[in-house]
Computed example of a mutant assay.
Amino acid sequence: MADPRAVVADEFTKETGLAIDPTRLRAHQARQVAVTLSTHRSRLFSFQLNAAELDELRSDVAAQGATAESERTYVEIARFGDLPTSATVDWNTLGAITQVLLANESRAAVDASEL
């Protein structure tokens, strides 16, 4: 079985055009995607972009994805505070983003308490 971080990094690269090191990925809690409809579970990973990577994503407007399979993806960058009132993401994605941000906030609080 393939290392989940390597699979996620490879998929991220295919869909954005930006290559990342799998060791940068942080695993979060796996959850059911639609509890009342399916037992399917989704794994969640995150990493922090640096300024150069963010600039690269902003400047590349070309379609990404597995074009041989007719998959086309485009990177969209948005502020978290704008997401709840936009139609950019679904509830599932908004919840996943919130989970990552809350986990980072909790980790920062722990780090600060150790000072």
Rank of each mutant, 00 (worst) to 15 (best):
Q99A: 13
T13P: 00
R107A: 12
P4Y: 00
A96T: 00
T98S: 14
E71P: 00
D60W: 01
I77H: 09
A78N: 11
R31V: 03
L49F: 07
V89R: 12
V8W: 03
F12I: 04
H28E: 11
E11P: 03
A51P: 02
E53T: 06
L57C: 03
L54W: 02
E53R: 10
E114T: 13
F45C: 11
A109L: 15
R79H: 14
V100R: 14
T88Q: 11
L57W: 02
P4E: 01
A34G: 00
E71C: 09
L44S: 02
N92S: 05
R41M: 09
R41S: 08
S46T: 12
E105L: 07
A34W: 10
V89F: 06
D21C: 05
T73N: 12
P84D: 04
S106A: 12
T67S: 11
S59F: 01
T85C: 02
A87Q: 14
V35Q: 14
S106H: 09
L49K: 08
Q32D: 07
G65Y: 01
V8L: 04
E53D: 05
A87G: 13
A109V: 07
W91L: 11
I77A: 02
A51K: 15
T73W: 06
L18P: 00
A87N: 14
D82E: 13
F45M: 13
S59R: 15
V7W: 04
A96I: 01
R107Y: 03
A6S: 13
L37W: 04
L18H: 03
L18N: 10
N92D: 01
V61S: 07
A66V: 05
M1R: 09
L18K: 10
H40P: 00
A19C: 04
A112K: 15
G17N: 10
T85W: 12
L115S: 14
Q32F: 03
T73V: 06
T13Y: 11
D60V: 00
R72N: 03
S59G: 15
R31W: 08
D82T: 12
D90I: 01
S59I: 03
Q48D: 08
Q64I: 00
V61G: 03
A87M: 09
G65P: 03
V75M: 03
R107V: 01
T36L: 14
A9E: 08
S59A: 15
A51G: 04
D82A: 13
L37E: 12
A6Q: 14
F47C: 05
R5I: 00
I97P: 04
E105T: 10
A68E: 13
W91K: 15
L49W: 02
V100Y: 10
E105C: 04
A112I: 12
R79K: 15
L49Q: 05
V89Q: 11
L44W: 04
E105I: 01
E114F: 13
F45E: 07
L44A: 09
S46M: 11
Y74L: 09
G95F: 00
S46D: 14
A62S: 14
A2S: 11
F47M: 06
G17R: 12
A51T: 14
Q48G: 04
L44N: 08
G65V: 02
N50K: 04
L49H: 05
Q29L: 12
I77W: 10
G95V: 01
T13H: 15
L18Q: 08
L18V: 06
Q32I: 04
Q48T: 09
T23K: 14
A78F: 05
A34T: 09
T93C: 11
R58W: 07
P22E: 13
P22W: 08
E76Y: 12
S113D: 14
E76K: 15
A52M: 02
D10A: 12
